[in-house]
């Protein structure tokens, strides 16, 4: 019962922050709402017996990804951009309506088809379920191939990010003169 109440409260916060992110004019606020959302989701992970994932969620998502977002928003001053007009006037409500409709349909579909019974108790192993040791065990045996594959992903992303942002001094000057011309 306690869990259910906690869930409902957190779910409200979670949805609220998501909507907050969606509607914030200011990108910094949007990012903060998202951080809140991620932290709440981390709490859900704890409730679902995934402490390791919960911690990674906070470290990676809240601690690294969103900080980077924030960093870039501030660096480029993106929070200043007001969306002038944005979508055409009729498109906005249509998009919202479609989104809402989709949501209702999905929720109804799941609600009517899935069993409302709580998942079975994991018993004695509940304490160890989702522990780093267990995760590691599975990760380095069954999932070793994708794990190795992802190293290429990270390498490529690293190389890519460097290539995209590294400017040679000379080129920069040319660019600036070009921009002045325009």
């Amino acid at each position: 019962m306690v869990q259910l109440i906690v869930f409902l409260i957190l779910a409200a916060v979670c949805v609220g922050s998501a909507i907050g992110m969606l509607t914030s004019k200011n990108a910094v606020y949007a990012a903060l709402f998202l951080v809140l959302n991620f932290v709440v989701i981390a709490v859900f992970y704890l409730m679902l017996g995934a402490p390791f994932i919960a911690m990674v969620q906070i470290t990676v998502y809240a601690g690294a990804i969103m900080v980077l977002f924030m960093f870039v928003i501030m660096l480029v001053g993106a929070e200043m951009f007001q969306e002038a007009g944005g979508l055409n006037s009729w498109q906005r409500p249509v998009a919202l309506l479609m989104g809402f409709g989709l949501m209702v349909v999905t929720v109804l579909m799941i609600a009517t088809s899935a069993s409302p019974a709580p998942p079975r108790d994991l018993g004695v192993s509940a304490m160890e379920f989702g522990s780093p040791a267990q995760i590691g065990e599975v990760l380095y045996t069954n999932y070793i191939f994708p794990f190795e594959l992802i190293s290429f992903l990270l390498l490529a992303a690293m190389v890519g990010a460097v290539i995209l942002t590294k400017t040679e001094r000379k080129k920069r000057r040319v660019l600036r003169s070009l921009r002045n011309k325009n």
Partner: peptide
Amino acid sequence: SVASIAVY
């Protein structure tokens, strides 16, 4: 993870 939040 808590330390990483502190940046905010």
